[in-house]
């Protein structure tokens, strides 16, 4: 015996579609519909085409334009408009790997510092380096395979630069800031990474008006690493970065870099968005 000996006729199909059958009969119809394509087709006249078209438009919109990553929603929530959130979210250094990497590295340094205060050097070394590296990775041809196309678009390069930098920087500043109150040493020492981090980031941007961003970031990283390592090796001080001299030097570097950046901002944006 086959399941298909019995089929709906047009009259029953219409009554079912209009809700004019008992629930027992409806159950029978529904069980049959799951198996019978011919009878399913009988339902087509019951739903208006424009309604189906409208639903389909919405489906296409959602299927092809998923575009609401967690980051985008977060940015949107912070008041960033949809289009800008889109641009920020596609910054390579903000896509998954970088965020995870930053958080994991900081977490490891944080845990190490919890167990051994000497490891504070590692935390104070890394916390300023990561945002600068993130900025370097976010710009220039290597970061965006579509750079040549991007360069020909009217979008304000300064705007793009500013927004991306802000988000990249906060992506490593926020976890570092969250970790700080729980670090060994005084509250001041735990926040010692902040001034060098700002100086490194703004410095990377300022140097990028003359050098490739990754060269700028690498140079500053080596400089900062030598300061921290030297402090640890020569003075046996894991908090060397927190000493007034280092902090003052950082603030001075920050001020100089910011001034350079302010003067050169248009050039920088144009430099960063193009290859040659």
């Amino acid at each position: 015996m086959t399941n298909e000996v019995w089929h709906l006729d047009g009259e029953l199909a219409g009554r079912y579609a209009d809700g004019r059958v008992t629930s027992v009969l409806a159950t029978s119809v529904e069980q049959h519909l799951l198996r019978c394509e011919t009878c399913r087709r009988l339902m087509q006249p019951s739903v208006r085409t424009d309604r189906l078209d409208h639903i389909w438009d919405e489906i296409v919109e959602r299927v092809e334009a998923p575009g609401t990553s967690l980051l985008e929603r977060l940015l949107h929530w912070c008041g960033v408009d949809e289009a800008t959130a889109r641009l920020v979210a596609v910054t390579p250094s903000l896509r998954g790997a970088w965020l995870t990497g930053t958080t994991v590295v900081l977490l490891l340094a944080f845990l190490a510092a919890q167990t051994a205060p000497q490891a504070m050097s590692a935390f104070l070394l890394l916390a300023p380096v990561l945002p600068a590296a993130g900025v370097a990775l976010s710009f220039g041809p290597a970061s965006d395979p579509a750079h040549e196309i991007v360069a020909s678009t009217p979008h304000s390069a300064v705007h793009l630069l500013a927004v991306r930098t802000a988000v990249v920087v906060s992506s490593s500043f926020v976890p570092a800031a969250l970790a700080s109150p729980f670090l060994p040493g005084s509250a001041w020492a735990a926040m010692a990474w902040l001034a060098p981090a700002l100086a490194m980031t703004v410095g990377t941007l300022a140097l990028s008006t003359r050098l490739a961003p990754h060269v700028a970031a690498s140079g500053l990283t080596i400089l900062w690493a030598s300061v921290v390592v030297q402090g640890f090796v020569r003075h046996h001080d894991p908090f060397f970065a927190a000493t007034p001299s280092v902090q003052l030097a950082s603030v001075a570097a920050l001020v100089v870099s910011a001034a350079v950046l302010l003067v050169q901002r248009r050039d920088l944006a144009e430099v960063l968005r193009r290859v040659s």
Partner: peptide, 21 residues
């Protein structure tokens, strides 16, 4: 329930359909 009085009229169809499975 829609129009419960129809139940008796339709029960023959119901049986054919659901009875099979």
């Amino acid at each position: 329930e829609f129009a419960p009085q129809l139940t008796t009229l339709e029960s023959a169809e119901d049986r054919v359909l659901l009875g099979i499975e």
